[in-house]
Design a protein around this nucleic acid. Structure first.
Lengths: 179, 179
DNA sequence: TGCAATTGAAACATCGATGTGTCAATAGAG
DNA sequence: CTCTATTGACACATCGATGTTTCAATTGCA
């Protein structure tokens, strides 16, 4: 039963996102393996965290590239972006918090670039008349990322089904909580 | 120059909210005092964190009590609640993350109670017809708390003036990012 | 100025997490 | 079935953070 590094990584992401101080022991237990095996896969805690960051950054890159290339009307672009929001929620919960990541010039730079590209998408929405123009794109992008985090936490806590996340985000993002 | 514990607490909150693993050394430096002095004020790291939690919980208690007693129309109640959002943002950034807090039965219970009371306020808004009724109050309350966090982070990063936070939250909360 | 209180600096022991290594048990391919 | 590779359990040294103590320097009041 050879241990799959990718599976370990996937199970480690929510653990570390929730508690950045989680020990290798805890991470290993959640993954259902021993600390020794975990250390064999990722000899250093820093390597583990960096592998997580790289996976998440790659996911976000792909999703953003798709949104940027999408020539459809902005409301459809936004809906598609929201539908794959999960990596964004994990990105900011992990990359932004973890010194082993934000200390890495490469990861830090990529994270900033991803945020700036998200801002660009929002500004495209502003120019197309879909999104409000009375606040900077930065705020709108942060709102999107924040809502992604909120949906993710609601899902983790069991208040929300995994399938409901995207619709929740779209509804609140576009129309707020008003009746 | 006798050190003021309250000032130390105030400067420690953003530090610990951003990085729960921040050492006593770092916290002391940010407060402009030595580790020895910090330890004299808060003999244990746990005591420091608990003092922070208690301060924030007290702030939230007061604000919620005001909102609950307020007989004004719901839109005014909500605006008043949002105007004092900062403690809420700090609450979830700290209490939710920090084991020394969530491990404390008292703090954990109080945090849950505060969230439930926030849900109640949102449900009052739903019953009054101000807020949408197609999703549970839990989601609306989480949205509010999440937006508070977003505004707080935008402020910390310098993207938003401190005075703009409440208006931003109200605008997005009620109407979303649509034009 | 002189005294009491407070602070900062340093040394020290302790504790938990980490990284390294070893070895027996076991899964899986041949 | 046999052999090889992988895993889990354990022991060990190391490192950083913590909490404690001591002492000199500095502050602020009498």
């Amino acid at each position: 039963m050879r241990t799959d590094a990718t599976e370990v990584l996937d199970s480690a992401i929510p653990v570390l996102a929730k508690d950045r101080a989680a020990s290798m022991q805890v991470i290993a237990s959640r993954a259902g393996i021993s600390r020794a095996t975990l250390v064999r896969l990722f000899p250093t805690r820093k390597l583990l965290v960096q592998a997580m960051a790289e996976k998440i950054l790659n996911d976000c890159d792909k999703i953003l590239a798709r949104a940027e290339a999408d020539a459809a009307p902005m409301d459809q672009v936004l809906t598609a972006l929201v539908a794959e929001y999960t990596p964004f929620a994990q990105l900011w919960n992990l990359v932004y918090i973890e010194p082993d990541v934000s200390g890495l010039p490469e990861a830090s730079t990529r994270a900033k670039a991803i945020f700036l590209r998200t801002v660009k998408v929002m500004e495209r929405g502003q120019n197309s008349g879909l999104l409000r123009n009375d606040m900077p794109g930065t705020w709108l992008a942060s709102t999107f990322c924040g809502l992604a985090e909120t949906a993710w936490e609601l899902t983790l806590e069991g208040h929300m089904g995994a399938r409901q996340g995207p619709d929740f985000i779209t509804a609140i993002l576009l129309h707020g909580v008003s009746a």
